[in-house]
Amino acid sequence: MTTEVRSEEAVAEVTPQQEKMVIIAASGDLDKAWPVLILATTGAAYGLDVTVFFTFWGLTILKRPDAGISGEDWRQKMLSVFAKGSSDHLKLSTLNFAGMGPWMMKGLAEDQNVASVQELLELAKDMGVTLMPCQMTMDLMGLSRDDMIDGLAESAGAGSAISLMKEASISLFI
């Protein structure tokens, strides 16, 4: 018995469990996508094993700019027209003014050297952040893998999200 415990401890010392961080990205608003990616990349800079789980409108951040009309159902098609998606077409949650708000916000960010959502998304991938799309909301909205950008993890569901959060020292819903 004693030797068994000792050997487990030895294994734990050799392969220390990397601390985990999970962010549930449920919004497609520019002012939510930005902090999601700022925190995800900074978490990776802290040596954390970061997973971002994209669900509902959060999926729009992961859509390809040229995704076009998606889905089989007319309602899915209409949704894909209204919510064009891609990280370059996100709207502000307030003061959107038909795109005037995001345009001004992005212009200010560029002037002040604030990394864009696209840049942060690329950095997140480079830094090993796991970008995980939610399968149920992809089905709901009629999105296929072809509508999404490259470099994503396998899609998963709420169970995987809960399992990850149970293990994580930081879990955020944004």
Binding site: T42, A45, M127
Partner: peptide
């Protein structure tokens, strides 16, 4: 220099 949050932390971490 000139870069805003979170870039300084990301840059030092990468280095």
């Amino acid at each position: 220099r000139g870069l805003q949050c979170p870039m300084p932390v990301l840059k030092i971490s990468q280095a």
